[in-house]
Design a protein around this nucleic acid. Sequence first.
DNA 1: TCAACGCATAATGTATGCAATCTAATCCAA
DNA 2: TTGGATTAGATTGCATACATTATGCGTTGA
Lengths: 238, 238
Amino acid sequence: MTSQHPQIAAGPLTEGITRSVSITDSLRCAILAGEFQPGERMLEVSLSERLHVSRTPIREALKALAGEGLLDHIPNRGYYVREYSVDDIVQAYEIRAALEGLAARRAAQLGMSTEDRAVIEAALRDGEAILNKGELSPHDRMLYGEINSAFHGAIHSAGQSRMLRDMLRQSQQIAPSSHRNVIAFEQLDVRRRHDDHFRIYEAILCRDGARAELLMRDHVESVKISLLRSISRELLPD
Amino acid sequence: MTSQHPQIAAGPLTEGITRSVSITDSLRCAILAGEFQPGERMLEVSLSERLHVSRTPIREALKALAGEGLLDHIPNRGYYVREYSVDDIVQAYEIRAALEGLAARRAAQLGMSTEDRAVIEAALRDGEAILNKGELSPHDRMLYGEINSAFHGAIHSAGQSRMLRDMLRQSQQIAPSSHRNVIAFEQLDVRRRHDDHFRIYEAILCRDGARAELLMRDHVESVKISLLRSISRELLPD
DNA sequence: TCAACGCATAATGTATGCAATCTAATCCAA
DNA sequence: TTGGATTAGATTGCATACATTATGCGTTGA
């Protein structure tokens, strides 16, 4: 196997920060973008040649990514791209549901800052505008994806807990990493989830922590259900 | 500041595995044991001198521990022992409550292996024996702590999710790291929590996931409550 | 007196060479 | 032919030297 991968990204090496962290970012993006096969070995020398640095910052980056759960490390045998089975993805959604529920509850109990509220209200407004346009173009779907991230990000922020934020990021990160499961969401699903957002925000504004948690948990669980549904469809071709 | 710390543990360096991982373990233990002050800087050179290795494995260990949340890393400025406020500990219990609830639900849904059931039944039996002896000696309390860990560990195992286990370990790890909050549990608290264990196990055996989750969540939350109570007592000396 | 600059020291970041370990192919013997 | 041992190549682990960056103190100027 020679130069099987495109280029990853040799650019950000000169961006001021240390090589170690910029390489960590580059490799993280590359892995999440599916530029490495699941289970593939991450050879220190080939990476160092491709990125034009020595093995040292590569090793630091690999260790960091292993800490994030993107790689597995076996002493004396190197790092491997971690494979996530469908069941792993489902588990990640269950964890995310539990944690997002907690974040929503805390947001309701602690109250939201004006900044976080502004982000959410913009997300609700912009999402509404997109969905009212009728059929969603691929570009619209991508746009809605960002709006969705902004909504959840604001609630994570409102949870006011670094540990919670870190764990949420980890549980969110693994789903896109398995390129196999690009869920083609039905338009109705998107509409329904957008409506969920209104209710969740309402519950948070009313300081109803229990309701906010319940709604958020079910909101995230519904994504898990969609995933399972699309997989069973895939197995049963019509 | 010269040799302020005892010895940490220079022993396990020759235990077969790589220096990097054994040093990671040593430092983790030392940090959890409170042998470093919160906020204290972890200097690579002094650690390498104390442990008689070069900076390289030290740096690997520090990066790994930063990934676990025990250290903070600022590029070009080194690693610091992460400080956990009382609020951080409370948040960790809330996260743990959510995740342990999920683990209990999954254990109920998936069923428990005979090994896990055996561990739990031993924990219930041994705990009962200790509690029936009357007043708890410090040694008994430590023993009960291990029994408690065994109980929860079996349920984590029954959850059958690596990501869930990893996150649970992280959320459990930080509480003991803040030596300030050694909660002096009332004996009644211990009794009550042991009874909780029976009910939780019963719910799991009945495959009642919702009930197992509810009970487990409240079980862990009650520890948070005890912590908050003991702190408010501390602030209001009678 | 105080602020700002510059230098000296120390600590982290990176590169490289060597040692230890793993992997796989080859060879020998049963 | 097959099974196991052996050896060569490749890869990771570790140590060390050098480069870069931070930090503290002293000096200088207004």
